[in-house]
């Protein structure tokens, strides 16, 4: 039986002004698992995922990735995880190939390995034909697919995805789902946050639902529907989570160091 690749114990994040975004959560993710982490806006999902990749410093608690405590071994953790964020974050004046080459170099990979990864990943996300075009020319779906490929350049063991299909049409979503299933089949652990309940139901082996900084329920989609006497995951979600009280408070306190820019800078 596979061991835990992510272990979270008593994880707390308190922002200045005593805003408690995450209030002592505990969970584990097994190696090779497709794990869903759901919750309404302001529940603390993005703060949690940002703490798991060390983008946000935790207030207290422990986070272990592949047996390593994140605050003691950030560089080792960065090599083990890939992160496709809500903001796609592409270099608009670079081509896909240039960006992948740069990222490979920054992960200190040998050139031959980078070239092999680029060929493999561009094929996986079906972007080989546009590899040498500037990323600013890509459609929304292409950008998401490329971002997914970019987050995999260094062969991470765990892939974190923060709303990877937000703003995509059903065709583009299906394409991304296909890529994710393929990666998971190859043994990659996937940690997904999404607002699409059908996406979570379709893809995830196990789901945890968070609300107001705490985990309110967990299990496989089938278990959760049975447990909460619901027809689908959307019903489970509505039954287990409340309003979005606290959202404004949490959003006013940047969920990560560089999120102020999205709201036009410091207020």
């Amino acid at each position: 039986m596979a061991g835990n690749i992510i272990e979270v114990k008593n994880l707390v994040k308190t922002y200045p002004g005593d805003v408690k975004a995450v209030r002592g959560i505990n969970f584990n993710v097994k190696e090779g698992e497709f794990f869903g982490f759901l919750g309404p806006n302001g529940a603390g999902k993005t703060t949690t995922i940002n703490m798991l990749v060390n983008l946000v410093k935790k207030t207290s608690g422990t986070v272990k990735i592949d047996g390593l405590e994140i605050s003691d071994n950030p560089d080792e953790i960065y090599k083990k995880v890939g992160f496709a964020m809500q903001e796609v974050g592409l270099d608009e004046v670079a081509t896909a190939r240039e960006m992948m080459q740069l990222h490979g170099r920054l992960y200190h990979m040998p050139k031959a390995e980078i070239d092999a990864q680029i060929a493999k990943l561009l094929k996986l996300v079906e972007l080989e034909k546009v590899a040498d075009k500037f990323t600013s020319t890509y459609s929304g779906g292409m950008r998401r697919r490329f971002d997914l490929a970019l987050s995999l350049i260094h062969k991470p063991k765990v892939l974190f995805l923060d709303e990877p299909t937000q703003g995509l049409d059903p065709h583009a979503r299906q394409l991304i789902w296909g890529h994710l299933r393929e990666l998971n089949k190859q043994g990659m652990t996937i940690f997904l946050t999404t607002h699409f309940m059908d996406e979570a139901e379709e893809l995830c082996d196990r789901i945890e639902i968070m609300d107001k900084g705490v985990i309110v329920t967990e299990g496989s989609p089938a278990e959760l529907m049975k447990k909460h006497n619901a027809k689908n995951m959307e019903e489970v979600f509505l039954k287990t989570t409340g309003s979005t009280i606290g959202e404004e408070e949490v959003n006013a306190n940047a969920p990560d160091p560089f999120s102020r820019a999205r709201s036009g800078g410091r207020r």
């Binding site: 990749v53 060390n54 983008l55 950030p74 560089d75 080792e76 960065y78 090599k79 995880v81 992160f83 964020m85 809500q86 903001e87 796609v88 974050g89 592409l90 270099d91 608009e92 990222h103 920054l106 992960y107 200190h108 970019l150 990560d256 160091p257 560089f258 820019a261 999205r262 800078g265």
Partner: peptide, 18 residues
């Protein structure tokens, strides 16, 4: 630098082992 921060590219850099 602001463009890199706003696009999210800067965040990509700071979660790399660099």
């Amino acid at each position: 630098m602001v463009q890199d921060i706003q696009s999210g590219y800067f965040k990509k850099l700071i979660i790399m082992p660099i």
